[in-house]
Amino acid sequence: MIGNLPLITVGLITVIGLFTIVSKRNLIKILMGLNIFEAAVNLFLISIGYREGGIAPIYTNAVQGLMVLPTPQALTLTSIVIGVATTAMLLAFVTIIYRNYGTVDTDRIRELRE
């Protein structure tokens, strides 16, 4: 049970993130929801990479034990970096939209439709 805690958290955060994305009408809140969902994915990647009793693959003064390939950690770092870039760009878009439309409400940002 306690070993599954990270995965349960992942499920919980995923639901919170997706619910925020579809239910909130404020663009900033939608982006927050997107970031929450992204946090869930990152937590998922980290938790699948955990091995009981494994040690980091640093060969200098290494203690005896099973070394773990740090691929999931590398994936998570990459994903965080991409997430920062995406969020920065989306927030820039929201700023420009606010300047031109005077609102961040998705119901009123629908010049392009039909």
Partner: peptide, 14 residues
């Protein structure tokens, strides 16, 4: 069909 293209971001995600 035409009104289904609402242009609201939430609908797209939904």
């Amino acid at each position: 069909v035409v009104p289904a293209h609402t242009g609201v971001l939430n609908d797209y995600l939904l």
